[in-house]
Design a protein around this nucleic acid. Structure first.
Lengths: 225, 225
DNA sequence: CCTTCCTTTCAAAAAAACATGAAAACATTT
DNA sequence: AAATGTTTTCATGTTTTTTTGAAAGGAAGG
């Protein structure tokens, strides 16, 4: 889990970073609003901790800017502001509001709540569609023409590896290492057999594969759209 | 939007009701934890405001009970409690924590945040029907052909976990972690034994499972419609 | 056209994973 | 302490998947 901290005080950033890293989050830091917005776009963090007092722009502008294109959870950090401020920020899209000084434990708990929301919200699991084939990596499910296709564990591992590198050629040894482990890197035949089985299940015409293409002498490639 | 208030102080309920109704929410009230749980199940509110000091049972128990079958947003209300309390409640599934005394405006704002989260999530049905099987997560009750099926605690935990992720493949280790806890993650045979028992009770023909499907090498999947 | 190299297909053997019954251990209630 | 109900453990037979080897197909080069 990646967290972005946007705060101009060096010391506060340090404290937050240490706290978060101790809970094994990966942390990015930004010292200005502008930098914060850039990093939010570049790093795609799983949550943002945003301090309201920034040198270059009002914190709420950062919030609005991020909200215009992302629904990433944002926890706002601020010295005791007015009620109206709090309300305004929450309505502007903040997920939570923590007043300084705060306890690290509480921030962590509220962060967990925010991440929990983000996780359950993603009910629209990422569906990969390739022609008439749908692959739902989260649900561990593959459909062909809308019907569930039953894959064995090995077949699924190969397909999922190909999907994650759609369009790229994956060598035999890469596939073997990923699916069977390092010590199998030379058992090229395994790949042949299992890819053949996979094709039988997911290709319209296994004799003329349209999805899993053979790259002779090298390996296989999953046809991007 | 319907809001359920669970609070034993008449006066506080009055204040909250007036505040909420002024913002055109419909309000239900409960004065005890037990009543609160019942009403949560009956009324299906869109959010719950839960006071921690209840006469009949600890507020956290109410929270846990509701969380066992619903993901409705719960905002916890409490007099200044310890940090540890706050953290514990948030981790137990509370969506927000507001300390008394609080400003009505802030509560409303936090309520809007909670409802915003819930809105992006899918609806949950109170009663899950799968073929001839009915599962009422709120009532902890399972019926088969209309007759109540008696499940052991373990069996119910497994079934309820499957129901909450209907259609998705759940791995052995996910099931083990959920039902038995982290340190059992490798005791695959536990799952085999208990799923077999579960099938005996809920499948029409346990030899050819139609509800709980096995995904060889991976885990089990509850058949969605 | 033949040879070679690689890929695909097929099927049997081997291995792994699964289902299930029953006994032992454990917990709970009376 | 006995009775009851549940969970854990163990053993066994069954099913499914993986591995293996052999043979067939196909493209490229001589």
């Amino acid at each position: 889990m990646n967290i972005l901290i946007i705060d101009d005080e060096e010391q506060m950033r340090r404290l937050l970073t240490i706290t978060l890293e101790a809970s094994s989050y990966a942390v990015f830091e930004a010292g200005t609003g502008k930098d914060g917005i850039t990093q939010a776009a570049m790093q795609r963090p799983d949550a943002i901790v945003l301090d309201m007092s920034l040198p270059d722009m009002p914190g709420v502008e950062v919030l609005r800017s991020v909200r215009s294109w992302s629904s990433v959870p944002v926890i706002v950090l601020s010295v005791r502001g007015s009620e109206a401020d709090k309300v305004m920020l929450l309505d502007a899209g903040a997920d939570d509001y923590v007043t300084k000084p705060f306890s690290p434990q509480e921030l962590l708990a509220r962060l967990r709540v925010a991440l929990r929301h983000a996780a359950t919200k993603g009910v629209e699991s990422p569906l990969v569609c390739l022609g008439t084939l749908e692959i739902d990596l989260a649900a561990h499910m593959v459909k062909k023409h809308g019907a569930v296709v039953k894959l064995t564990a090995t077949e699924y591992k190969i397909l999922s590896f190909l999907v994650r590198h759609e369009g790229r050629v994956l060598t035999y040894s890469q596939i073997l290492r990923e699916v069977w482990g390092n010590q199998y890197a030379d058992s090229t035949h395994y790949v042949h057999v299992h890819v053949a089985a996979l094709r039988r299940k997911i290709e319209d015409n296994p004799a003329e594969p349209a999805l899993i293409l053979t790259e002779s002498g090298v390996g296989y490639r999953l046809q991007g759209r």
